[in-house]
Design a protein around this nucleic acid. Structure first.
Lengths: 333, 333
DNA sequence: CTGAAAGCGCTTACAG
DNA sequence: CTGAAAGCGCTTACAG
């Protein structure tokens, strides 16, 4: 391989001059700089990332920690992966993708071996063991999802409580008095994914205030249970005029379930949900929904994480809840 | 941070002894080894990955190169990502996920900076510029997808030609004489994704041999075009008794399109496709299909790549086409 | 069975 | 504006 020494020799300067010419960290004369650049490109020099990491204690790599749970709909997670990766690369960082089941162990592994400068945790739960592991690691981290103890970590999430209130208000303003809510699967609640109950509890509370009957049910995540559960919930609640679906697998399955049942939206039933624009496009979902903004969330998380890496102490901790925005697709009446 | 020197001091031995005790690359006395291990765990020592990479020229990281094209259905790619990541971790490797648009440049970047020991290329096309970049890099690579020039690279893919023949044979054995094929979008062909024409051409050839009329159409990848194209193709070909869908977005949209049209499977129409078990489960696809085996493909690619990293010269080049297997879900008659 | 030392390829004070 | 040298934390011949 070609090293900085080769470049120095070819350009007739010292290795330190090459390093400075490349980094711009001290002034270099115009002609020296040109000679260095010529040598670099003619030799095809690239800095050895391990050597640089050893010298600077910076890897320019971010860890992305995620898990594929049985109770989650895989396509939904992809949007966050892509958002984080793109945002990182735009700022010169690469992404180490870590998916092993033992997330806390994985954090210890990649931080203590100095493989990454910081980590992004996806799908953080209420008592997520990864959060303690992160704190102990001393590396900066950005969380997507809300843990019980937010001390010393940066948090980025949709305002699920606000989203729940917003959708209930929307249906209330149209005069609905009886609403069915399809939540994430029971396992998601038990796992401690706060987004599930933040949304549900806010919706319930808001409905109560409006005097609306809101029936909350758990949805499913795997077919054929998804469709079956939708049918049985709709069977049991056929007097309700509106449906709130906070469940990715269920919203994807809903169009064909409703078609099966001969239910017309919004004439027979008003439907609202939460999903991103791209998600809705992949599956042709025609429902009025709160935009979940994975791109924005991923970008803000990465941006803040990088700022904290650069200046761990003077960066204020942030708990950022992206305000919900509703996209009206005409599925309510 | 705690270094190997700290461990050596605590254990009362030299740094080299610590290194050897940890790696097992030379015999260490039982008691020395125990003292080292005790020091390691009490101090919480982990090898600095950059330092090790610098000393050994091995990073224990694999690059995973992929792009999200407009003309592809995102959820399908996720299965390969997960398969590769899991297989790599099982063998002690981490995954650097590289998604930038300039794939060839990305390969140059991560290989020449020695960030990875090898790369996996997903979705390789006929004249994929990444393949040349890979060859020039001198690093081992495993490709998923078939390039024009297979010299010096290892290839792992489904036998799409065999899959095309198998599905046509299956329909032929049931007496079908007129079949519609929905291929990937035109853009996928133009991009040079060989799997698209390998499947189609083999199906056409096989159909011709059987004296079957096979009408090949391009499908779409984005809603609402997907559904519209399905409707217009089915309108134009309403005399056909069987449908082969080689298009992820289309097969996901098919159930509701057929329901819309009042078409019963398999009574009115036989349907066959290609997708993985998990993919089918996510979307409740009830169709007889060739299993695309992303898990197996990912695992074989990683396994072979790691073998080649260990011994670049004595590892024979491989072009591996996983034989198609049909899963009968009763959607044909 | 163990140690002292060279070397991997960088960056960055220190010195001029 | 530039150079010589130390140092980052490992691994591995070399030597005993």
């Amino acid at each position: 391989m070609v090293t900085i020494g080769d470049v120095a020799r070819a350009a007739g300067v010292s290795r330190s001059t090459v390093s400075y010419a490349l980094s711009g960290k001290r002034p270099i004369s115009r002609e020296t700089k040109e000679r260095v650049e010529e040598a670099v490109s003619s030799l095809g020099f690239t800095v050895h990332s391990g050597a640089r990491a050893l010298a600077t204690s910076e890897t320019m790599v971010l860890g992305l920690l995620l898990q594929f749970h049985e109770d989650e709909f895989p396509p939904a997670m992809l949007q966050y992966i892509l958002a984080v990766t793109t945002a990182a690369r735009k700022r010169g960082y690469d992404i180490l993708m870590v998916t092993e089941p033992d997330g806390a162990g994985a954090i210890r592994r990649v931080t203590s071996s100095n493989m990454v400068d910081g980590v992004v945790l996806l799908d953080v739960t209420h008592d997520d063991p990864r959060v303690d592991a992160l704190r102990e690691s001393g590396k900066p981290g950005a969380l997507v999802g809300l843990p019980m103890d937010t001390e010393g970590v940066d948090i980025f999430d949709l305002d699920f409580s606000g989203a729940g209130r917003m959708l209930v208000d929307h249906l209330h303003s149209l005069g609905h008095q009886e609403i069915v809510l399809i939540s994430p699967p029971r396992d998601v609640f038990q796992r401690g994914a706060a987004y599930a109950w933040r949304f549900r509890d806010a919706a319930l509370e808001r409905a109560a205030r409006h005097g609306i009957r809101l029936h909350a049910h758990y949805g499913e995540s795997q077919e054929p249970a998804v469709e079956q559960s939708l049918h049985s919930i709709l069977d049991a609640r056929d007097q309700a005029g509106a449906l709130i679906v906070h469940n990715d697998a269920s919203i994807v399955a809903l169009p064909s379930v409703l078609e099966d049942r001969g239910v017309k939206v919004p004439d027979d039933l008003s439907v609202v949900s939460l999903y991103s624009r791209n998600f809705g496009r992949s599956f042709r979902l025609p429902y009025t929904a709160v935009e979940t903004s994975p791109d924005q969330l991923g970008q803000e998380a990465v941006q803040h994480l990088i700022r904290r890496i650069a200046d761990p102490d003077n960066t204020p901790p942030v708990v950022r809840f992206v305000p919900p925005e509703i996209t009206d697709r005409g599925s309510t009446a």
